[in-house]
């Protein structure tokens, strides 16, 4: 039986539903030394801001039980350099490019979104309103439904590209956030970003991260992601790209069943640089094993089981 892995989402004709998550893959250059990036359904680029940003002091990462904390702080060379140097590199590959955009003010989000209008090599924007590691902007836009709606509407107006809004799990009502950005015109959702966490080093009594707090990712957060995607998918009609602790093809199927239409792999790239192509290779068998003939066929199918 041939299994159809392709999936069509706003702006994105994906040959398969697997893409590396923003911030975990840089701009693809390093991983292109390990495998041909044509294999990927899409690539979510590292966040772009209006101007170059250095990010936080080190240490920026710390290990946790079944996961890790990071506080990179959106280090990037700025949107102009990304469009001039990184997008052309990725455009050589037969895969979709999703540009993650971030800012400290709504105006900065608009500027960055508009800058990507000059390139048709980018297929969609991922609006990062959920980075927990920058002092201003970022997370506030991701925790207040009105602010999230406003930045979504303004970016939609500024951009020619479909806009996927990346939701933060650091909220008490994820459904309210999802509904607000859907109403404001979002073409899709990506979820979840990292959960804010902290770890203290016993000998020094200091936080392990120089930023004190950071975003928790990895296998530890997968159940949170599944729960939130499941809840949100019941209340919105725009597609969801799911992420949070995916390590293998079984995890991917679980995200599809919860209601995601595609998935992003993050922290697992650090453990195994080949994880994305390995998941893509394993996915047809896993889908077949559980009775699905395509990715499309599995989306949201977890729901009926529990009703």
């Amino acid at each position: 039986m041939s299994i159809d892995l392709s999936i069509d989402l706003p702006g994105l004709h994906l040959k398969n539903p697997i893409m590396p998550a923003s911030g975990c893959f840089g701009f693809g250059r390093e991983y292109s030394a390990f495998y041909h990036l044509d294999q990927l359904g899409a690539i979510m680029m590292k966040a772009a801001t209006g101007t170059e940003r250095f990010g936080n002091p080190t240490p920026r990462v710390a290990e946790t039980a079944s996961g890790m904390l990071n506080a990179i702080g959106l280090q990037n060379p700025g949107v102009d350099k990304i469009i001039a140097e990184e997008v052309p590199f990725l455009a050589k590959y037969d895969t979709c490019i999703i540009a993650n955009i971030a800012g400290s003010t709504i105006e900065e989000y608009e500027t960055v979104a508009a800058a990507f209008n000059q390139t048709s090599d980018v297929h969609a924007l991922e609006l990062n309103i959920s980075c927990p590691n920058v002092k201003e902007g970022g997370i506030q836009f991701g925790t207040d439904p009105d602010m999230a709606a406003e930045v979504t509407a303004r970016v939609k107006a500024a951009s020619n590209h479909p806009v996927y809004v990346k939701l933060s799990p650091n909220v008490s009502d994820i459904v309210a956030m999802a509904k607000a950005v859907e109403k404001a015109g979002a073409d899709g959702l990506t979820m979840i970003n990292t959960l804010t966490g902290m770890q203290i080093h016993l000998p020094s009594r200091k936080p392990l991260l120089a930023n004190r707090t950071g975003g928790l990712s990895g296998a530890a957060i997968k159940p949170v992601a599944i729960r939130m995607i499941y809840e949100v998918s019941q209340h919105v009609s725009i597609p969801i790209i799911g992420m949070g602790g995916i390590c293998n093809a079984e995890d991917v199927l679980e995200f599809l069943l919860a209601g995601a239409s595609a998935v992003a792999v993050g922290t697992a790239n650090f453990q195994n640089p080949f994880v994305c192509p390995e998941i893509i290779e394993a996915l047809p068998n896993v889908l077949a094993q559980y009775g699905f003939s395509s990715v499309q066929d599995a989306i949201g199918k977890g729901v009926s089981v529990y009703e």
Binding site: C24, G26, R29, F54, T58, R60
Partner: peptide, 14 residues
């Protein structure tokens, strides 16, 4: 330094 990916992609050890 504490590293993430170890290949230059994650910007942990700058």
């Amino acid at each position: 330094e504490r590293m993430g990916c170890g290949v230059g992609a994650c910007f942990a050890c700058v």
